[in-house]
Amino acid sequence: MSDLTDLYQEVILDHNRQPRNFGELVGADHKARGHNPLCGDQLNVYVTLAGGGVIEDVRFDGSGCAISKASASLMTEAVKGKTLADAETLFKSFHELLTGDPSVHAAASTELGKLAVFEGVREFPVRVKCATLAWHTLHAALSGDTERVSTES
């Protein structure tokens, strides 16, 4: 049986209460708006890129459940200073952690660092979209696809 404390890890609760990099990034050169119609979560992700495709700064705002807010917060910490390619790879590993074959993702969790706290989400399939919303939105912002992102598309 899945346990609530696996889902609501202390780190997640902390980032929910005090999200990092929260608030609009003025002068962002990339941004996108994400929406999860199932629960009404809405968030904006803002990015400024430095030369060489490095994520110089990234912030988010909006409203959402604990999982989506904490995921956005931890994501901003994880990708800041990374190249676009590295951020994409991280997204893939993160996605794998939530939805993939558990025997495969064991290796991936080292590279995920703090993001591994979301492992418990895989036991709550309806919440996977909450955890990935920020990432999908970041992806949209970086691929210049500034249309609204929806988890239902």
Binding site: Y8, L38, C39, C65, V126
Partner: peptide, 30 residues
Amino acid sequence: DDVHAHDVGTILDQEGVAIRTGHHCAQPVM
């Protein structure tokens, strides 16, 4: 206060209590 409906729904579900969370197909009401 300070707890999103989606989290409320998940926790109640674990207690065996089935409720609905979200906009209930009535976004203008929300």
